[in-house]
Each structure stands twice: as structure tokens, then as C-alpha cells.
Design a protein around this nucleic acid. Structure first.
Lengths: 122, 122
DNA sequence: CAGTATCCTTTATGATACTG
DNA sequence: CAGTATCATAAAGGATACTG
């Protein structure tokens, strides 16, 4: 039975949830930000995304590629050079994520103060 | 040495990263959405957030409370009633997250098609 | 109702080594 | 350079039981 009277974006089988689950994680947000200003090579992403290991970076890039958010271009140099870039779709997502990044910058102080207040009295 | 000439939002010790790491996860986005239209009680959140277990919901709520994003109000009924609501700060975050939710709704089809294309040829 | 505590399983990540 | 493969470990999550 289990009929759905109105599409609930919070139900587990809602497609919106499927996308959010994939897209709302810190490494996705990070990589999208790193690619925001043009194509970047693998090892440069690795260096600039501190704390992001080679393995996790590779996994993240595969997923983003599968989702059609980034493109992968290999140049036949020796050794090979690989560039990652946002697709048009990826650009729209990067734009949607930007407010979140700005929020973090604007409100970091307030969050840290709230944490301290919570920790001291609790 | 490793001197930082300009603050890099992608370095691990950048405070923006600290906030994004906490805030850019699917349960946070989900709960903020559920609280967007006013206070909600614990078990209602549990029911409406399909796939979100009691344990994980409790953990998520504690973190959000610690970050100053939501408030917890206990009413001395029997049994006790607890309402969670966005703080003013939480409302600003919910607003910043909204574009991401809209993006997911608007582009789900395109993402699913990209995944199929990737899976068939690969 | 609104949780916490515990145990146990699954998943994710880290380190290391290796390849076209 | 740009990865993959493997193994070990840590972190996250589910199930269950219990409490003010």
C-alpha cells in the first residue's frame, strides 16, 4: 500500500533526497569550489584540498563525473596530464552551493561562540 | 615553512572548512528543512525524516544545538514534550541551504540520465 | 515522549605499494 | 602524473533495551 498522497521531499525514496545525499557532503562542496575558476589537474586538487587523500579525491571525482557534474580530459603527454572541469550542469550546482560557502565565512565567529557557550555550561 | 600568503578557504585549518565540514552533510540539510516552517517535536522529526534513526537524529540535534543553529525547549507535560526550532542564526543557514534543495529538485532528471550514460558505456 | 547506553555490524578512511 | 589495489583501522550507523 504505502500510497504517497503528496510528494514529500523528506521521504527516503524521494529523488530529491537521493541527489542531496550525494551532493551535500563536504568533499563535493570542496571540489566544486576548487574547480570554480577553471580546469584543474589531479595533483593540484590534491595539494589544494588539504586533508583530502588521494584515494578519497579519486572516489569523489568518479562520483562527480558519473553524476555529470565534472568532465575528465586526459592529454597524451608523457606522463599523462588529466584535467578536471565543471560541466555546465556542474556550474549550476557550484552556484547553488556558493551561498553555503559565503554563509560559513560570514557566520563562523557566531558558531564558534555558540559552541563555547554550550561547552562551558553543559 | 609553509607560510600562508593569502587565506586559503581550502586549507584544512581554515575556519570556513571547519564550519562546512559540520554543516554540509545530508542530515543537517534535512533537519534544517524540516524545521523551516516552525517548531517540530522530536518524534515528528523522526517520522518525517525517513531513514533517519532515533540515534542519528538525536546526535544531529545535539550538534545543531551546540552550533547555535537550533533551540531546544522542553515543556513540563507528562510525558515531557520537546520542541526544536531554528534560531535566528539557523534561519540564515536554512536560507543559504535552500538553493541547494531547489537545485536538487530542478536537476534530478539530468543527474539520473548522466548516471545511466556513465554506467552503460563504462 | 524523548531520549541515553550498549553492543555489534557495516562503511569509510588511511597507509602503503604498485602501474600505464 | 594519475591513478588502482590491498589491507588495516577508525568512524558511523542499526538494533535493542532501558529511563525520567
Amino acid at each position: 500500500m504505502d500510497q504517497i498522497l503528496q510528494p514529500n521531499p523528506y521521504s527516503a525514496n524521494c529523488p530529491t533526497r537521493l541527489v542531496l545525499d550525494r551532493v551535500a557532503d563536504k568533499w563535493t562542496v570542496l571540489v566544486l569550489g576548487l574547480l570554480g575558476n577553471g580546469p584543474v589537474r589531479f595533483n593540484r586538487l590534491r595539494r589544494e584540498g588539504e586533508g583530502l587523500s588521494q584515494k578519497v579525491l579519486a572516489q569523489t571525482l568518479r562520483k562527480l563525473e558519473r553524476d555529470g557534474l565534472i568532465s575528465r580530459t586526459a592529454f597524451p603527454t608523457v606522463p599523462v596530464t588529466v584535467e578536471y572541469a565543471l560541466t555546465p550542469l556542474g556550474h549550476t550546482l557550484a552556484a547553488a552551493v556558493e551561498p553555503l560557502r559565503l554563509w560559513a565565512e560570514d557566520h563562523i565567529e557566531e558558531v564558534l561562540r555558540a559552541q563555547q557557550a554550550y561547552d562551558t555550561q553543559e
